[in-house]
Each structure stands twice: as structure tokens, then as C-alpha cells.
């Protein structure tokens, strides 16, 4: 396909289970967590791919793989048709300009000692030398697009509300004009009223700037509004991928059905109960 920005082919990511030094030495090859376990997906230009699934199903890991914040165990990732699976150094830095990440935890990912212009400007700096004045003007220009007052350049992150901090991380991702933004739970810490503001902003920005999103979330309602396509992840694999309306209205895979049934407000109770198996079963890693 030509309009795919990112092509993930048969990606695997295994994490070693390290309990103690001795175990790590003795059984490094045996005990692994299959965080991402053979996944193939395209993310197209100007589209939002929603990624939903249970906690620990590997959503964040897949997002980090796409942004090359993790190295793949196996498989390939292509960005704009170019294989980036094993890029290092300056090549990797070039990717950072095209793919940005908004992290799960808006509090933990903003350095409390830096001011707004330093935080938001940081990815631009990483790309090459920029003068202080230029950076400040670029940040000041950007802040209104995410709905923050342009005059808050010299404030600290703790002076913002939860929604405000989420907007800051969004501005930080936008400053390098990326093609793709990986949004890891962008609204999970927010209430519905604030969430609506942020989701609207995301959709507007996408239209205006031609962005693609990989939106990772637990929140089915948010995915419904933002996504064009949805992938449902379960135990490191895709249970179901498809158009957002199809997946949410006519789920095929039993896990998707259970997930949708579990939403509060849905009339029926979940058709199954019991805890979802973890990625590492008690007999660890022998799948």
C-alpha cells in the first residue's frame, strides 16, 4: 500500500523476566514475557488507528516499538517506505522528528524543574541548535493551537491542571511537525468534560496539520470518537482489526465482545468472568 506511513510486519517484543541476578544469568533465554507477539499493521496517512485492550496486553509496548523507543525482538518496521528496524544514532534522531510520543503519565513525563518553553521546545532542540529567542517564539505560536494561553511560556508544569499538562505534552509532540503521534492514554487521567476538550482538539489538529495518530487507550468511547480504524489487542496479539464502526458495532472476536459488554451502561453483564490470563502464565514463557 502506498499511503501507509508506518508498516509493521510480524513484530515481536519479548522482555526477559529478571527476578534476580542468578536467574538472569541462568535462564535468560527461557523466561520471557511475550509483550508483543507477532503483530502486523499499517498506519495510513491522516488516519487514526485506535489500539484498545486490557492492561498489560502490550499496547504501550507496540506504541514504543513504532516510535523505536524499544528495539524489536523480531520483525520489521518501515516508516515512509524506509526500513527503520535497526536504525541507530543520527538516523534514529531523524525518526524522532517524524514520530512523536505523548506519554501515558502526564505528570511523570514533564520535568517539574523546567519551564513551559523549555519542556515544549525540548524535541526541537534535540534536532539541532536553535536560538533561545527562536524557540520561545515557536513555542508561543504553538501553545494556542493546543488551547493554552500563549503567555504561559515561563510557568512550571505543576501550575497546570491535569488537562493543561496533557495539552503541554501534546504541544511538545507537535513542535517538530511530526507525521505520526503515538498517543498513549492521552485522556485516561482526565474527566469527561476535559476529555471532550482534548479529543476535539486532537481531531481539529489532525485535519489542519494532516497528522496520523496511533491512539492507545482503555477508553472505548474515546476511541469511537477519534479513530478511523481500531485494533483490539489481547495477550500481545491482535484479536481484531477493522473499521471503527464495524469493530464497535459488530464485533467478531469473543474478546472484543466481552470488552464491549464490560462497558458500564451496557445493559448486559459480561458473558464470561474470571481474570484474563497474564502474558506469562504460571509455567512462565513456555507457550
Amino acid at each position: 500500500m502506498t499511503d501507509a506511513i508506518v508498516e509493521v510486519r510480524d513484530a515481536y517484543k519479548h522482555f526477559p523476566v529478571t527476578q534476580s541476578f542468578f536467574n538472569a544469568v541462568k535462564r535468560i533465554s527461557k523466561e520471557v514475557i511475550h509483550a508483543v507477539d507477532g503483530v502486523s499493521i499499517d498506519i495510513r496517512e491522516k488516519e487514526t488507528l485506535g489500539l484498545i485492550g486490557e492492561s498489560g496486553s502490550g499496547k504501550t509496548t507496540l506504541g514504543w516499538l513504532v516510535a523505536r523507543l524499544h528495539n524489536l525482538t523480531r520483525g520489521t518496521i518501515r516508516l515512509d517506505g524506509k526500513d527503520i528496524t535497526t536504525l541507530e544514532g543520527s538516523g534514529l534522531r531523524a525518526i524522532r522528528r517524524k514520530v512523536q510520543v505523548v506519554f501515558q503519565d502526564p505528570v511523570g513525563s514533564l520535568d517539574p524543574r523546567l519551564r513551559v518553553w523549555q519542556i515544549v521546545g525540548e524535541p526541537a532542540r534535540a534536532q539541532g541548535p536553535v536560538s533561545r529567542a527562536e524557540l520561545r517564539s515557536r513555542v508561543a505560536e504553538l501553545l494556542p493551537t493546543v488551547g493554552l494561553p500563549g503567555g504561559s511560556l515561563d510557568q512550571y508544569p505543576h501550575e497546570f491542571s491535569g488537562g493543561g499538562r496533557q495539552r503541554l505534552s501534546l504541544a511538545r509532540a507537535l513542535i517538530v511537525h511530526p507525521k505520526l503521534i503515538v498517543l498513549d492514554e492521552p485522556t485516561s487521567a482526565l474527566d469527561v468534560a476535559v476529555q471532550a476538550q482534548i479529543l476535539n482538539r486532537l481531531v481539529t489538529l489532525q485535519r489542519e496539520m494532516g497528522l496520523s495518530y496511533l491512539m492507545i487507550t482503555h477508553n472505548v468511547a474515546a476511541v469511537r470518537y477519534v479513530a478511523d480504524r481500531v485494533a483490539v489487542m489481547y495477550l500481545g496479539k491482535f484479536a481484531e482489526v477493522g473499521n471503527v464502526r464495524d469493530v464497535l458495532e459488530h464485533p467478531v472476536h469473543p474478546y472484543t465482545k466481552a470488552l464491549l459488554a464490560a462497558l458500564p451502561n451496557a445493559s448486559s453483564t459480561p458473558p464470561w468472568s474470571g481474570r484474563a490470563p497474564r502474558c506469562v502464565p504460571p509455567g512462565r514463557g513456555n507457550r
Binding site: 487514526t48 491542571s161 488537562g163 493543561g164 469527561v192 468534560a193 476535559v194 476529555q195 471532550a196 476538550q197 479529543l199 476535539n200 481531531v203 481539529t204 468511547a221 474515546a222 469511537r224 470518537y225 477519534v226 479513530a227 478511523d228 471503527v244 464502526r245
Partner: peptide, 19 residues
């Protein structure tokens, strides 16, 4: 504010300002 619609149904109604 609870999202019940799809992207092509238009923007979510949202409350301006903050708490």
C-alpha cells in the same frame, strides 16, 4: 461530554473553560 459519536458526526459538545 461523554463521546457517543464518531469523528465524521461532527465535534463533541464540550464545556469551555476549566474548574
Amino acid at each position: 461530554s461523554v463521546p457517543k459519536q464518531y469523528k465524521d458526526d461532527g465535534p463533541l459538545p464540550s464545556l469551555p473553560g476549566s474548574v
